[in-house]
Structures are given as structure tokens and as C-alpha cells.
Design a protein around this nucleic acid. Structure first.
Lengths: 226, 226
DNA sequence: TCAATAATAATAGTTACACTATCATTGATT
DNA sequence: AATCAATGATAGTGTAACTATTATTATTGA
């Protein structure tokens, strides 16, 4: 399998971190540290110490800490879309394609040998607890204009278009899918931290499978599969 | 109509802001300022200047800025639950009660004459753009143990129990309602800032009504109304 | 091979926010 | 009027985010 690289919007960075050794170290170590410390506890100073570099060097790659978060989250959405493209390829029935997409979105993530430099499991945890912070800011409109959320929007658009393919009369494909995307991550967070807000955690079956079942339930009850 | 007061968990504050004039000014002005500046742009220093007081005085009421946010959001959830209790009283049919609850959750908020000291419309905007920040922290487990999220949990529990009343066989009442609560706010945010993620914004009907229609659609398609 | 130049990294700040320790004032009680 | 407690005001401290300047390294041309 040849090495591949996800191409991200240039506005996400000042200098492409995928181009240099230091850049790759910044990404790899950021993911680990944000996972451990949370985004608020994570600082460029701590990161610089960890990778034996300096704050100023990191600012060469990212305008600020927030942009770095947006970058790693955007990478995740691009990766997910890639996995869905790959996983649904050659499947004709849109119902099956939608099921595959939901499975990929909800499943527990393992390190992907295609992208050895990224810890996908840690990144998944970051997406669960930090991804909303990418757009819950006063700069959301500007950031959106700059295309920083293109990865997420494209992913939602892709899945929503399968919904429309199945049931063209359904009025809310985008709302349904953005809601499902949110729930796919939020429910895992609730199961781990505020379990009274979910039903994913009572019995034997694992959280991720239950989550998939719940969201399939929601999606396929909303649309008519003729 | 007699004046009433929502009773909040004592762990939300150091000193009850509803007890003093300064406390009330802190809440009222915080809501206005967080709405205008965003939670990150809002500081105790700016607040102190606005209410002609000092940072230290504000710290007498709230351990920190985060707790103040949690307090005002908790107030909102308590207010919503009160409105749902009031609005569903004497309605026997659980399907109708659920519809009323969904309407109250999604509708555009106006200042409530029962609570003249609070700007419910500004508070609603804060809930839309800041409420997730109350629990997306490293202290979520501790905060949950301290009962800081009791208002939200209680509200979800109340609506979920109506779902169960309608269809006892449905496996995911809590997940469904916490998902719907999230979507009720997230979809409005998307409609305003990242419209490609919703279908609430294309035509004549207003966002709030469409949102209500969408969420009724989701909920009642998931559960069997016999 | 070496000097010039450009790219990158390291050093040393600055500002502002979150929070705290201490002191001053007011108001209630005896 | 004196005492004490509650509350508010003053003056900090530590640190994160970011920036301006200096140093180093790499590249290129003669």
C-alpha cells in the first residue's frame, strides 16, 4: 500500500506541518498532549519543551493554539471521509452505503497503518471532547469563510446526499446528519462522564456498537426506505 | 402573579447571587456581556468595571469564571423545566405533553415577566453558543459529582420519561432526548453561522418553527405512538 | 572553497487574564 | 459607643498567549 497524505485547506496553517520533521512532531505530540491535558491545559510552551523546540518555532506553523486544534480536527474529518469513500466504494444500494458510513462514524478507532504518524485513537478522543470548540468562537463566521470547516461540511454533505438518494422527499437531510454526527461523539462523552444522559452504558454490549444501533435507529426511522 | 425564584444547587456559587443587589447585578450584566463578547472575551475585570465593583467582589460570589457560566446555564435549564411543568400540567395524553415540551425547548425566547431580572433572549443565545463549554472540561467528573449539571439532567430525564410513557419498548429514551436537546440549540447555531449543515434556513418559515418540525419528526418517527 | 543570502530557530521580552492576599469600610448587635 | 462580622476595595502574583529581535543553519553562486 503506497503512502498517502490528506490534503488540507491551506488556511489551516501558516506553514504546512506535513512538510517538515518539526511539523510532524508538532502534530504528533499535540494530539498526545491535548488528549492528556485537555485543550485548555495544553500550551505551546509545554509542547515546545516536549519536542525540544520553542514557542516561536511552533508559531511558524500555526497562527495560534486554536488554529492548531482546528487543524487536527479537520484532519480527522478528512480521514473519516476518506474511510467512508473507501468503505462504500462499489456498494450500489444506498441503504447499505449509509449503514457503512454510520458504522465508520461510530466505531472505535484504532491506529491506521496508512497514516503511521497519527494516533487515531487519541485523536478520536480529542474529537469527542474538543471538536465543538473549533466553531464555538466569536470568529466562527470568519473561520467559516476561510474554509476551516470544509472537512466537516464535506463529510456531512456526503452522508446527507446518501440520505437524499434513499428518500428524496425527506426535508431535513443536512440537519439529520449534522445531528447524528454530533450525537455520535456526544453520546460517547456522556456515557463516560454523565451517564444519566444516555442509554449506551447499562449492559454487556459495548458503547460503540450500541451507539451505532441507536443512530441507525434514528436515521432509518426518519427516512422512508421504500 | 407572585414573584418566584428558581432554586439552584448550592455548589454552583460561593454566595448566592440571588440574595443581594450586587449578586443580581453580576448575573444580569454577565448575561449581557457574555452574549456580546462571547465567554472567552468576557472577563471579571470588564464585568467589575461595568457594575462599578471589583474583581475580588465577584470572586465572593463565584469561584471562577467557569462556575459563573455554569450557573447561568443551569438557571436556564431550570427555567425551561419550570416552563415545561407549567405548560404540560393537566394534559393527559403523553403525546401532547411531548409536543408541548418540544415546542418550549425549540421556540424563540422572549423576556419572561415572571423573572424580570433575567434577559431570557440573551440567555438563550448564550445557551446556544456556550452551553457545551460547561461540561467540555477536564473537571467534568468532579463537576458532575458536585451536582452542577443537575438542572440539565433533570430536564432530560423529565422529557425522556414522557417518551417512555408513550413507548416503553423504546431502548434509547435518554440518548434520544439528550440528542434532541443538543440539536435544538446546535441547529440554530448552524443556521446562523454554518448554514450548509442545516435545512432550517432556506425558505419563508422561520428557523425556530422549522427546528420544532424537524425535531418532532425525529422523535415521533423513533417511537411507536400505538 | 568561501562569502552572501535566505530560511528557520532561539532568546527575551510584553500584555493581559485568572486568581489571591491583605487591608478598609460598613452595618448590626450589645 | 464598642465590638465584631460581613462585605468591598487595593494591590499584588503567576502564567498563558503572543511578538520583536537576535542567532543559527542551509542554500546558492562565484
Amino acid at each position: 500500500m503506497p503512502a498517502i497524505q490528506l490534503l488540507l485547506n491551506k488556511n489551516l496553517f501558516v506553514k504546512d506541518p506535513q512538510e517538515t520533521e518539526l511539523g510532524k512532531k508538532i502534530i504528533k505530540e499535540s494530539v498526545t498532549m491535548i488528549d492528556e491535558l485537555g485543550f485548555e491545559g495544553f500550551t505551546f510552551k509545554k509542547l515546545a519543551a516536549k519536542i525540544d523546540s520553542t514557542e516561536a518555532s511552533i508559531y511558524r506553523y500555526f497562527e495560534n493554539k486554536h488554529r492548531l486544534l482546528v487543524y487536527v480536527i479537520a484532519w480527522y474529518w478528512n480521514w473519516l471521509e476518506y474511510k467512508i469513500d473507501f468503505g462504500t466504494h462499489n456498494i450500489e444500494n444506498p441503504v447499505d452505503r449509509l449503514k457503512v458510513a454510520l458504522k465508520i462514524i461510530t466505531e472505535k478507532k484504532e491506529p491506521d497503518p496508512l497514516f503511521p504518524q497519527v494516533m487515531e485513537d487519541a485523536l478520536h478522543r480529542i474529537v469527542i471532547s474538543e471538536s465543538n470548540k473549533t466553531f464555538l468562537t466569536k470568529t466562527v463566521d470568519e473561520d467559516n469563510r476561510d474554509g476551516l470547516f470544509r472537512g466537516f461540511k464535506s463529510l456531512c454533505e456526503k452522508v446527507a446526499s446518501i440520505v437524499t438518494e434513499i428518500d428524496a422527499s425527506f426535508k431535513y437531510p443536512h440537519s439529520l446528519i449534522s445531528t447524528v454526527m454530533q450525537a455520535a461523539h456526544q453520546q460517547v462523552f456522556y456515557a463516560e462522564h454523565i451517564p444519566t444522559l444516555t442509554d449506551l452504558n447499562q449492559e454487556e454490549m459495548n458503547i460503540y456498537q450500541k451507539n451505532e444501533d441507536f443512530l441507525q435507529n434514528v436515521v432509518f426511522n426518519c427516512i422512508k426506505t421504500s
